[in-house]
Design a protein around this nucleic acid. Structure first.
Lengths: 135, 135
DNA sequence: CGTTACATTTACGTAAACGTCAAGCTCTGT
DNA sequence: ACAGAGCTTGACGTTTACGTAAATGTAACG
């Protein structure tokens, strides 16, 4: 209800995930909702993180990788060396993403080529079918 | 040795897979090498199929999807409708891949932006560190 | 006060695609 | 004949990201 705090149910609807997922992410320290009694209340920070988590997942990052990358987004009182390591990690991920990107690019053009050939074959099949039905 | 028949070891080297993988694919009915005694001998047909399997995997098809596609391909020489369906499936997959590609593209630029900011932050941290050590 | 409706924790289950033993054939070389 | 290499078939292990069920708690409704 509140703009500031959301229940688990509200979160689920807003982000199209299950409660199990949110609890699971909490157990993995990706989220850290506050507790009112034993119920969870998700903050704006949790929502921001969840958004990033889901985006990370869409292109194949593991939750563990995402957890490490999330540190990049909340850099208040980090130690310098720690922060440097985080940035290095992000660079590695970026390199991997770019590799994936290239692979995907070539896979797409390969598949496109296959499709063109497949359609040509299909045309041949139709043609011979119509010939034999005309005979 | 023979161009016609290959042992499991030769197959592994030729395609850069492990024996376990080939046996696994056989158990999933993706391959069906002939047996000489208890050893496997892979035919030209197996090689063609394996090539398709590996390509399918690069496109992101699951083994189960690949199995179905191979089956359709097998019968599909005669059946026009099934071949059409195969092509439809490939088109869907292509669309999905293109969506992934776009997401990856934007994710990359986002991460790059984050890195730029992260490095700026890092510079600030170093600066304040040197100031405080100078004080 | 009882029922209904969610919430919670704990813990085992699942699917994909193999990896990794274990234990036993079989062929080769010496 | 014996060692070693390589092949075989189970069968259990691994990882990731949750699903699902059981037992229990809590809060509001009527």
């Amino acid at each position: 209800m509140n703009d500031e705090l959301m229940t688990i149910r509200e979160m689920c609807e807003a982000f199209e995930v299950t409660p199990r997922t949110l609890r699971f992410y909490e157990s993995k320290e990706l989220l850290s909702p506050i507790r009112e009694g034993q119920k969870r209340l998700f903050t704006r920070r949790d929502r921001a993180r969840l958004k990033l988590i889901l985006r990370g997942k869409r292109f194949g990052f593991s939750l563990e990788e995402i957890r490490q990358l999330l540190d990049l987004y909340h850099v208040g009182d980090q130690q310098l060396t720690q922060y440097t390591r985080t940035i290095e990690l992000a660079r590695k991920r970026l390199a991997e993403m770019e590799r994936q990107h290239e692979e995907l690019t070539s896979a797409i053009s390969e598949l496109k080529a296959q499709l063109v050939e497949g359609e040509r074959e299909l045309a041949r099949m139709r043609k011979s079918a119509s010939v034999s039905s005309a005979a």
